[in-house]
Design a protein around this nucleic acid. Structure first.
Lengths: 198, 198
DNA sequence: TGCTTTTTAGAATGATTGTTCTATATTGTA
DNA sequence: TACAATATAGAACAATCATTCTAAAAAGCA
């Protein structure tokens, strides 16, 4: 294929990341196309040509966020080089770092659950998929670790997954309230108390 | 004081409750004053006279919701007639009933955390207050029950509170995803496993 | 130099927004 | 009957919204 005409000068993913941060701060309904044009650093025309309308753009942002955040999570969970205990510790630190980061607290997907899941079927489908996949990855991790004898627990693999998943999701709300840092740390401590590492 | 003129014909709390449900379904930014006028069953003029502008109305809705939901919660926790075990069971059933109700899933306060807490200081203040108060009520309940010997646990009163609070908050998100009913039940089961009742 | 495509800024569009205003009807008390 | 307060419907307003259109500059290739 031969390229003709002026080549693209901006990176789609850079632009998407900027848009996603704006949506995250102000919400879907609370964000205007003018703000997006300014914030993404491209012209109105380029925005519509590349990403379609406002809703299309939001969906692309959500897909991109899901893709990026899932990648980090999966890479850590399926790593071969570190122990089960170390995996959990690193995930916990990653979550605390990402969710309590000053500029945009919480998680874009959790925000989307509350603003959009009920009224937007496409958003709901994406979120169902994301949370189901990460649930399955966690479940596989706990199941294998129990079978291997790397960990043991009073709780089943399913219960450990349910609890860890629940704590992760609750942190995305807790971190938006004041003075909850101790509670967040405590929750992961409680979770780790349920497990004996060998 | 002597009343003059035509008396009020609608109930403020009825109107607030209707407005709150609309905000909950569509979000603050996603709801128009026209929808509120229709949905609240009063005229535009009466709405502005009674509740002020859109933001004022939202704040009133949130205050009303917080007041109503806190009342139920506190009444159950501080009841003298039922055992600690029965209290927890009733709270759990109440939460599952309220949060997984078909017409409006989840919790209006949790929704407000995600859409509003970051950008609206007044909303943030109300939510901080609400969640802090219910945290303290739970903490007091667990502390007293441990001291009384009504319950015992490997976990401290603080840890039990942190965990129960976390599960409650996570359920407000989980219930908006598909096929999470079993997980929600399981979470409360895990929590109850942490406690021995006497 | 032409041709093609992407880039840009900004005007134009028509719909919708939150809010105020006008005008009138209703229902109580004095 | 007069007065006061609340009720109503709907017009009016200026602002903002998402989207499309216009027109011209920029940057590659044949």
């Amino acid at each position: 294929m031969v390229l003709k005409g002026r080549p693209k000068t901006f990176d789609n993913y850079d632009a998407l990341e900027k848009a996603q941060k704006i949506f995250w701060e102000k919400g879907f309904e609370g964000t205007s196309m003018c703000e997006l044009v300014s914030g993404m650093g491209i012209s109105r025309q380029s925005l519509y040509n590349t990403f379609g309308n406002k809703h299309d753009l939001f969906i692309s942002c959500l897909e991109y966020y899901i893709h990026e955040s899932s990648k980090k999570f999966r890479d850590l969970l399926t790593s071969d080089t570190i122990s089960a205990k170390e995996k959990l510790n690193q995930i916990i630190e990653m979550v605390i770092d990402n969710y309590t980061c000053l500029e945009s607290k919480g998680c874009f997907a959790s925000f989307a659950i509350q603003e959009m899941a009920q009224k937007d079927p496409e958003v709901k489908r994406l979120l169902d998929g994301k949370f189901e996949r990460s649930y399955k990855q966690m479940h596989e991790f706990f199941e294998q670790s129990l079978e291997n004898g790397k960990i043991s627990s009073q709780l089943s693999a399913e219960e450990l997954t349910n609890l860890f998943d629940s704590i992760l999701i609750s942190v995305t709300s807790l971190c938006k309230l004041s003075n909850r840092d101790d509670q967040i740390r405590s929750l992961f401590g409680i979770f780790l108390k349920q497990i004996q590492f060998s």
